[in-house]
Design a binder for these strands. Structure first.
Length: 422
RNA sequence: GCGACUGUAGCUCAGGUGGUUAGAGUGCCAGGUUGUGGCCCUGGAGGUCGUCGGUUCAAGUCCGAUCAGUCGCCCCA
């Protein structure tokens, strides 16, 4: 857990709201251009939703959910991922019936009860998309292309790891073949490996244990067990990616942590991120909607980790394009009795109403300190109002960069500033 | 859930082998006549030394516990 603050600390410069907004905007613009529409789902969902969709045997469900019982004796869980809630919402509101092809995106907080470390937080934000209704490999390519271009346009170097886990039938056949292969060496497997052998054999492939890797080196490969259809679909996805000039690496060991994946799965890994190098991941989940109680609607999507993205940019020394938070104009009042104060208060509102970012001092600072404050905020223009100006209905407009100053009519402040901004 | 390391001003950090009122830089505030800014000069505020307990005449410093954070394992975003 952490706070995102309005001002940068030298220790964690990525942890500022300006950077977060910049990334969110980058993502929003990209997916809106591609025809995706935003969905927002609640943080709390019935625990059952995640158990059913993600799978009881997965790490997330078995030990990483923030789950509690509410006053009505219902078991609720703070969402650990965004896909299941989106599916639930779409079923509940009949979106699948109304939209044969549904392209959605979301920006939201996810919660996982894990030990925190760099790039891994109990509350983290994901930027994601979900597409429902299409089995066309071209949509797989679109989703992959979006995830990749999100990073590449930011300047983040990353690698796309790709695999296909086929249909549940493909996996069932493969699972048996894999177990048959490993069984003779079972005694030599790590404790973790043995456990996975029983609970979730495919996850054995995901190990980093050297001994296990050696045992699995000659194991049958899931790809060889794909049905004709799955295999062709996967080949087609690769062809499109090649046509799009998106480099990828087939990763036979890539098995995602959720049970609902089918067909195309992928992970995007960054460089220089330490242990938490997965910037994003996702895949196809053709059986999920049905599993959650809807009609059979195919789907796929990805999630990108906001914190990891910011961390990656930081590691590369790239500052994301941020909003200019400086005021255009800063009003400075002068004179014994703060003569221009009332005029200033009114002018400030006028400027803002006209769409010009403007501010003034509220701490009773002296004339000189008001300039300093304006400088600190990075204003473009100072507007000086004193007794003389009030008397003549004018203001002094001074350009900070050039130092040039002119006396203009109070009523012409807005048009003059606007013309100077062009 | 497991392991290693770290906790001293808002921030970045100093504070050999325990010894008076715990320091610096930076930031913040004020002043340098409230009619001209950035720079500069002067001054000021701000710390129960993470917390609790122990050893000692004496603890920021040694010991224990606890909490928090960082990093790694696991897993993932």
């Amino acid at each position: 857990m952490y706070d995102v603050l309005p001002y940068a600390s030298s220790k964690e410069p990525w942890l500022t709201t300006a950077r977060w907004r910049a990334i969110e905007r980058h993502f929003r613009e990209m997916v809106l251009r591609a025809g995706y529409r935003e969905i927002r789902t609640p943080i709390l969902e019935p625990t059952e939703l995640f158990k059913r969709s993600i799978g009881e045997a997965t790490d997330i469900v078995s030990k990483e959910m923030f789950t509690f019982v509410d006053r009505g004796e219902r078991s609720l869980t703070m969402k650990p991922e965004g896909t299941a809630p989106a599916v639930r919402a779409c079923i509940e509101h009949g979106l699948f019936a109304e939209h044969p092809l549904l392209k959605l995106f979301y920006i939201g907080q996810n919660f996982r009860y894990e030990r925190g470390q760099k790039g891994r937080y109990r509350q983290h934000q994901q930027l994601g998309v979900e597409v429902f209704g299409a089995t066309d490999p071209a949509i797989d390519a679109e989703v992959l292309a979006l995830a990749m271009s999100f990073f590449t346009t930011l300047g983040v170097r990353c690698r796309l790891h790709l695999n296909s886990v086929g249909t549940s039938e493909c996996r069932a056949t493969y699972r048996e073949a894999l177990k048959a292969y490993v069984r003779p060496s079972l005694a030599h497997l790590s404790e973790e490996g043995k456990m996975r052998f029983e609970v979730n054999p495919l996850r054995m492939l995901d190990t980093k244990d050297q001994k296990d890797l050696a045992i699995l080196a000659g194991a049958p490969v899931l790809r060889d067990f794909l049905s004709e259809e799955s295999s062709q679909h996967f080949a087609q996805v690769q062809e499109y990616l090649t046509a799009l000039n998106i480099p990828f690496a087939i990763d036979d060991g890539l098995v995602r942590g959720f049970d609902y994946y089918s067909g195309t799965v992928f992970e995007i890994k960054g460089e220089g991120l330490g242990a938490q190098d997965a910037l994003g991941g996702g895949g196809r989940y053709d059986g999920l909607v049905e599993e959650c109680g809807g009609t059979a609607v195919p789907g796929l999507g990805f999630g990108i980790g906001m914190e990891r993205c910011l961390l990656a940019l930081e590691a590369l020394g790239i500052a994301p394009p941020q909003d200019d938070e400086s005021p255009v104009a800063f009003i400075i009042t002068a004179g014994e009795q703060q003569a221009g104060k009332t005029t200033a208060v009114r002018l400030l509102q006028t400027l803002r109403s006209a769409g010009i970012a403007a501010d003034m001092d509220y701490l009773g600072k002296n004339f000189r300190r008001q300039f300093k404050r304006a400088d600190d905020l990075g204003t473009k223009f100072y507007i000086i109002i004193g007794e003389d100006e009030v008397a003549s209905g004018t203001v002094q407009l001074k350009d900070r960069a050039s130092g040039e100053q002119e006396k203009i009519e109070l009523d012409s402040v807005v048009p003059v500033i606007k013309s100077k901004l062009l």
